[in-house]
Computed example of a mutant assay.
Amino acid sequence: MKIYHLSHTDLDGYACQFITHFYFKNVKFYNSNYGKEINDNFNAILSDIEKDENFEKAIILITDLNLSLSQCEEFDKICQEKKIKIFLLDHHQSGEECAKKYPWYLLDSKRSATKITYDFFSKICHTDLELSHFVDVVNAVDIWLNADENFELGKVFLGLVANAKEINRVMFKEIQVYYIFFLFERAIKFIGKENSHILLENAIHFIKKDFFMRNCDDTLANLISSFVVEKLGELKDEFGIEYGGHKGILTVNIGNTSIIGNDFLIKNPDYDFFIDVSSRKTLSFRANGKIDVSLMAKKLVGGGGHKNASGGLFSAYKDSSNYPYIKAQILDLIKSKELKKESKDVQAKELK
Rank of each mutant, 00 (worst) to 15 (best):
I259Q: 15
L183N: 06
D108P: 05
R214A: 15
A15F: 01
T114P: 01
K341N: 09
N150K: 12
S315F: 04
E53F: 11
R186I: 06
K298R: 12
I49L: 03
Y30G: 03
S132R: 13
S278M: 08
E96C: 03
I175H: 11
D64R: 02
L220Q: 10
E230Q: 12
I207A: 05
R111K: 15
G289S: 09
G35Q: 03
N66I: 05
K57N: 14
I167R: 04
A140M: 07
I334G: 05
H205P: 04
L232P: 00
N195F: 12
K340I: 07
D345M: 14
D210G: 12
F227L: 08
C98R: 02
E194K: 14
V27T: 08
H246W: 10
S315G: 06
H197K: 04
T219Y: 10
N308G: 03
E53K: 15
D332K: 14
K123W: 13
G303Q: 07
R286T: 03
N288L: 14
T117D: 05
F18N: 11
L200Q: 05
M296W: 10
N308Q: 02
S343I: 07
L145V: 03
W104A: 06
K155L: 11
I198Q: 12
T63E: 11
S225R: 10
N39R: 13
V135L: 13
G159Q: 03
L6D: 01
